[in-house]
């Protein structure tokens, strides 16, 4: 009897209210624990509140950089995934090399290295540089996700597309991408959430995004927890809606095979 409150399986599915209740209940419990911890270890919230404009500005910049990088990295990722499948060998080699190097090395090093390279050619726009570096980084991951999606579309689909006379670009647009999209959506949105969080590393080249804002508040107030808790909340506020959107899109793209 009691087990019915804990189990959800095909033979006896749990009602919707129970599934929601578990999520809400656990969230509330977690919030209570955090609340107690914060009440015990933090006191200096007034100093944080006074500096809220620093947080707002940093948060705004993080949103701006993430949005720009999201668009740019998607475009780059698609191009890279196509280059990776190209019949032209040098193009394919470049794509492989790029993906492996970027995925295999720390973002921190890439940011520092590329920022010095940009300095050499007197390109000093920090924000634009940050967007470019972040896009280049995320594109390598997206390229592999997209390639996996493209290759997951069956051979029979490609032959059907050829049989009705579609051109190669039309085949990608009307047959491959829509089907690949459905398969890669979870991985894609996960990568977008990562991109938002990865933008925090741009603070090391002095871009005044959200993380740097928290660091600045921390050094001014010596209140570490108080400075970084808003940071966690601010990032969650951006990444949680992405998960929600993903679920919505998954339902929209849903069709049986």
């Amino acid at each position: 009897m009691l087990a019915a409150l804990f189990l959800d399986h095909p033979g006896r599915p749990a009602p919707a209210w129970l599934r929601v209740a578990w999520l809400v209940g656990l969230t509330a419990a977690l919030a209570a624990v955090c609340w107690l911890a914060l009440a015990a270890f933090t006191s200096n919230w007034d100093a944080i509140w006074e500096r809220r404009s620093i947080f707002w500005r940093g948060w705004g910049l993080t949103i701006g950089i993430s949005l720009a990088a999201l668009v740019l990295s998607t475009a780059l990722g698609v191009l890279l995934s196509l280059a990776r499948r190209s019949r032209i060998l040098p193009l394919r080699s470049i794509a492989i090399l790029y993906v492996e190097l970027v995925r295999g090395s720390p973002l921190l090093v890439q940011i520092l290295f590329l920022w010095s390279v940009f300095g050499l050619v007197h390109f000093n726009d920090r924000i634009l540089a940050g967007i470019l570096i972040l896009s280049g980084f995320s594109a390598a991951y997206l390229a592999e996700i997209i390639r996996g999606g493209i290759e997951g579309v069956g051979e029979s689909q490609l032959e059907s597309a050829r049989a009705i006379g579609l051109t190669t670009p039309q085949t990608y647009r009307f047959v491959i991408f829509p089907q690949a999209m459905r398969n890669i959506l979870p991985a894609l949105t996960g990568q977008f959430a990562s991109l938002i969080k990865d933008s925090s590393l741009l603070s090391i080249i002095g871009i005044e995004e959200f993380t740097l804002a928290a660091q600045q508040v921390n050094s001014a107030t010596y209140s570490t927890l108080e400075s970084y808790v808003p940071l966690a909340l601010g990032y969650l506020l951006l990444t949680l809606p992405i998960s929600g959107l993903a679920r919505l899109l998954e339902r929209r793209f849903h069709y049986e095979h």
Binding site: S156, S160, A163, G165, Q179
Partner: peptide
Amino acid sequence: RYRAGIGIVFQAYNLFPH
């Protein structure tokens, strides 16, 4: 263009599932 001008039907999976 030649393929577009004729009709071809395979054993299965002719249709696009989406």
